[in-house]
Design a protein around this nucleic acid. Structure first.
Lengths: 201, 201
DNA sequence: TACTTGTAAGTAACTTATTACATACAAACG
DNA sequence: CGTTTGTATGTAATAAGTTACTTACAAGTA
């Protein structure tokens, strides 16, 4: 009856992570049960605990996957850009592309951010965001030094606004719901953001 | 033994709402049980159902409270501003003040946004956000007509960025956690946002 | 054979909601 | 004015359902 043959723990772990990310695209991640995951994999619920000791371990693995995915894409984007400001632009677009490809990701991140302060998974998310902001502040600093943006931008505020701009787009697409594919003004927001930095374009 | 005397349904409903908002400031709203609410009120769990038929009814009442609070404050802010752009500024600051006063509010909104599309509570939140964006787009249109901002701003994008800017600040304060009171660059972000509109000031 | 991956069934803990019963309180009445 | 009586508000207990995790056993694989 099992349409799903035996597999190694390694490949099952990857499958579990992918399944969680996929399910989070359409449902509240907090309401995704181990039974839901197992059912989506054509496996019994108990089987999951052969590959992860806890449900928390699953959530942690999912966040780890998100981190490597996001950081790789951001790094690549920045690396293949001619100058620092184009790098910012590329990072912005890479981030948007990532969450467009995996709409469950922002929902997962939100869900973990709601967790109590002490939660290891939440602390992991905090760490990722902190690094992201540092990366942005650094890049903005370089842009300022290279006189590509106005010398009096508050780099801390500009980092917050960068993430906020993406947040705003995410929220707008989340609000639209699964049905309506309302045009989300990605490029419009990006243009506005760059304008706020007072660069020359 | 009851330190809490009998009260009218009306006052109890208000108390329940306030308690949920307060609890959401420190815990995951999705994990706040009826027992938690009751315990915080010095009342037994079953008593809650004398005043609300469902837990969903409670959540709906909470969102209704958020709506009236937010809309009143935004309306007042805009009304008491000399010009349209100052109105935008005042709305921004009023929103920030509101969520600083009730840190549970954004968490509650996030939690409801994670709900399935069909959920009545989620639809309510969607409605509120839609109105908010319309209000913003309208104001931005007026500002453009009065030549207070650049004529070629994309008002839709500018609305999204307005909400995103606030979102970014919220996230930054959520990231800091309950402990660290890291300075959140509210004014810096507001200044950047206004700069993106290309106004003169 | 020895180990890994899977299943089926079970369990303990938790959550919403209901139910049977108690008590405060206001209005009606003698 | 004092008593009765109906209703709103409260409690304690519990029903019914869900969830994460465990265990005893089976079967594939090296």
């Amino acid at each position: 009856m099992s349409l799903n043959p035996r597999q190694s723990t390694e490949s099952r772990q990857a499958e579990i992570i992918a399944t969680v990310v996929a399910l989070a695209a359409e449902r509240n991640p907090a309401d995704v049960t181990t039974t839901d995951i197992a059912k989506a994999m054509n496996v019994t619920q108990g089987a999951l605990f052969r590959h992860f000791s806890n449900k928390e371990a699953i959530r942690l693995a999912v966040i780890d996957w998100v981190e490597t995915q996001l950081m790789t894409r951001l790094g690549d984007a920045q690396a293949s850009a001619p100058d620092v400001v184009s790098g910012l632009e590329a990072m912005f677009l890479a981030h948007v592309r990532f969450i467009r490809e995996f709409p469950g990701v922002p929902r997962l991140v939100f869900a973990e951010l709601q967790q109590p302060d002490s939660s290891p998974v939440r602390q992991r998310v905090q760490q990722i965001m902190r690094r992201y902001r540092q990366m942005l502040a650094e890049t903005l600093g370089k842009a300022k030094a290279a006189q590509l943006i106005s010398p009096d931008v508050d780099t801390e505020a500009a980092s917050a606004l960068f993430l906020g701009a993406i947040q705003g787009l995410v929220m707008q697409s989340m609000l639209g719901g699964a049905s309506s594919d309302a045009e989300v003004p990605v490029l419009g927001v990006l243009r506005l953001y760059l304008a706020s930095l007072g660069g020359k374009s």
